[in-house]
Design a protein around this nucleic acid. Sequence first.
DNA 1: TTGATTGTCGAGCGGTGCTAGCCACAGATG
DNA 2: CATCTGTGGCTAGCACCGCTCGACAATCAA
Lengths: 191, 191
Amino acid sequence: MVSIQQRRERERAERHRLIVAAARELAETEGWESVTTRRLAERVEYSQPVLYSHFKGKDAIVSAVAIEGCGDLAQMLREARDAQPDPVAALRAVAEAYLEFARARPALYDAMFVQRTDIPFGTPESPPELKAAFGAFVSVVEPLAGDRDLETLTEVLWSALHGLATLTGSSRLRPDHHNSRLDLLLNGLLP
Amino acid sequence: MVSIQQRRERERAERHRLIVAAARELAETEGWESVTTRRLAERVEYSQPVLYSHFKGKDAIVSAVAIEGCGDLAQMLREARDAQPDPVAALRAVAEAYLEFARARPALYDAMFVQRTDIPFGTPESPPELKAAFGAFVSVVEPLAGDRDLETLTEVLWSALHGLATLTGSSRLRPDHHNSRLDLLLNGLLP
DNA sequence: TTGATTGTCGAGCGGTGCTAGCCACAGATG
DNA sequence: CATCTGTGGCTAGCACCGCTCGACAATCAA
């Protein structure tokens, strides 16, 4: 019976999504330290070993959440960019959107860009969500790159924003002066 | 007997240092995931509860290592700075020294600037080692700040370097192009 | 109907950070 | 010198972690 097989695969894929969604929700509401395989299994109303029939381990679940988060980030960056016709304003809008994403969803951000991961970054094998997020940065840097290498300059912008995001999020920068820092950074990266 | 009290305090302080040194060495050679209270107790040849008579918990031990690391970093930055009379060359030397520190001692760097911590950053109550490290950055940024706010500009430089360091260390940037990224960043931050 | 396969689960392994409570020994007191 | 006392270290154990083994139930093929 092929249709039964199909139904099973459908149910399995649905459960897969359910696990990722539960992990993400738990992480976003209570932090990754509260995401244990036991609590996750309880949330999806299956036993622990079921998780391991879908994912190689807890890290793989975190990676799945991270990739999903990259898709969200890419969309937010694109929207910020498209709302600003002027290239300089678009750069600033995208930078602000990035920092706002990190501030509003710290757990998601952590899984994407802080925690140790085996997701391949910066290669052709990178997941499309990741390329989309980086591509949003590239597209907003491109009109302002001048004769500087586009991809490298984008990496610099991203790195600087990442530094601001993580150090701000961990209370290692003075809480005020947030906008001043962004001003100085963006002024420096303009041609 | 006062001298006996003194001897005890001396021995206690010595053991305190021993614990921090053991934690640091274990972290630097095998990573923080290998630093467990059991292994640490074994290294210093005491039982686990002794650790808790010196530190409130494992996090406090990590913090002690982090503060020690800040002292090391401050010294390296000062040496890099003082070897370059030209301000621009000094900035570059300090930036390179910082990135090299992060590359060569990833576990130490992690405890200092990545892991969650309750060390107060950017306030008058910050540990002197921390102020010294930040001060080294300030002193090298100062001749180049122009009319920009010195402390804010230093925070931007530090954040950008931190972003480069962590994203490079977690293989999220293309391994080549390291120097190009630093070139672009520093050119942008010059007046 | 029977045998094989698939999928799920309880239970448990070796680890974690941390702590309660016992016990030996040093110092004070008679 | 003998006894009491308090400090400080240790053994043992708690509750939890990620992960997996082996039994069991349900489904499918013959």
